[in-house]
Amino acid sequence: MNDRKENKAKSRRDFLQSTARYTLAISIGGIGGLVASKSKTGDYLWQIDPFVCTQCGRCADECVLTPSAVKCFHAFDLCGYCDLCGGYFKPGVMDLNTGGENQLCPTAAIKRNFVEDPFFEYTIDEDLCIGCGKCVKGCSSFGNGSLHLQINQDLCVNCNQCAIARMCPSDAITRVPASNPYKVKGDFIKSNT
């Protein structure tokens, strides 16, 4: 009877010890897993594939930031530096001047500067750009597609689930390694996709 009591007591002690040990192990494992998963998430960032993007306009409105972390980037090496720039001018304009009524960008974020005859340079004012992609559509319709959308990683808060990616109709936004955070045209060519 006493032995049984002793065994029972030992079992309870063992049980408590085992429980404590397993609880500790699970906690450490859980914390380790969480840290590992956090660090893995930190190694990847959201980015737009410019060759998949259809300039649907959602990047401007769906980002949790206002204005959006998506901005227009300009691959100068692809640009024709044209007088009549499809990304700068509204279709059908007659006068190629910087009048607001002629500009395609809804926020006048593209600056047109005369370089030398017949070249004009187009630069993006990121503070004004809302990432609507209207200029990108114009550029790819009539030009070389040098204007394209990218998520500015300096602005992006890297949400666990990117609100724009969730709404992107062409699934152009995916995770990319933090070591290679941009898919800028020129460096990044279609065959790389």
């Binding site: 306009g57 401007a60 319709s141 709404m167």
Partner: peptide, 19 residues
């Protein structure tokens, strides 16, 4: 709702107009 949102009209649509 998601599907509907995916097919909503683009407020920044590039309009070629009459050209």
């Amino acid at each position: 709702k998601n599907e509907l949102k995916k097919t909503t009209k683009n407020p920044y649509e590039y309009d070629l107009g009459d050209i």
